[in-house]
Computed example of a mutant assay.
Amino acid sequence: MTDEIIKVAKQNKQRLEQEFERAKQDDTQLIKKFSSEKTKLAKNQVYKSRRIETQKREERGKKITRSIVILGILLIIVIIIVFKF
């Protein structure tokens, strides 16, 4: 009996999903609403992507700057050692 209930529930779910898809295609107001929501989501996604890329670029810049400073200090130390001795 439980298997039958689960089977009926799955069938009802599929039927409701199909009806929703048909209604979504038929209802122009619903299509317009979903398209504007979809556009907003796409814009937010682009903004987040750009923000993430900017953050990664800044981190890379900090690493490169730190590496250059360390190399400069090492170069100064080597020059001092070479000319002192």
Rank of each mutant, 00 (worst) to 15 (best):
I73K: 05
I64L: 07
D27P: 03
R66P: 00
K62F: 05
G61L: 09
R22T: 13
V46L: 05
E37W: 14
L74E: 10
R51P: 00
F34T: 02
A23K: 14
K7T: 02
F20W: 10
Q29E: 11
R66D: 04
I68G: 00
R57K: 15
K24I: 10
S67V: 01
V46H: 08
E58K: 14
T28S: 15
Y47M: 12
E21H: 14
L74N: 13
I70W: 08
I5Q: 03
E59S: 06
N12C: 01
L41D: 10
N12H: 02
Q18A: 11
K40Y: 07
K63W: 02
S49H: 04
S35Y: 02
A42C: 08
Q25S: 09
E58W: 02
Q18P: 00
K10G: 01
L30V: 05
K62Q: 12
Q14T: 10
R57L: 08
F34A: 05
N12K: 04
K63C: 07
R60V: 02
I68S: 00
I64S: 00
E59G: 05
N12L: 02
G72L: 11
E37S: 03
D26N: 13
D26E: 15
K43L: 03
D26G: 11
S35P: 01
E37Q: 07
Q25K: 14
K56W: 15
R57Q: 15
E17L: 07
F20Y: 10
K38Q: 12
R60D: 11
K40Q: 12
R50I: 05
R51W: 06
K63H: 08
Q55H: 07
A42N: 07
L71I: 00
K24G: 10
Q18E: 11
V69G: 01
A9M: 09
I5T: 15
E17G: 01
T39D: 12
R15M: 02
T39G: 06
I70C: 07
L30C: 02
N44R: 12
Q29H: 11
D26I: 06
R22N: 11
R51H: 04
T28D: 15
S49D: 13
A9P: 01
L30K: 01
I52D: 10
K32H: 11
R15L: 04
E37N: 02
L30N: 00
I52H: 12
K33G: 08
Q25W: 06
K7W: 00
E37F: 13
Q25R: 11
I70Y: 09
A42S: 12
R50M: 02
I31V: 13
E17R: 09
A23R: 14
T28H: 10
S36G: 07
K24M: 15
I64T: 07
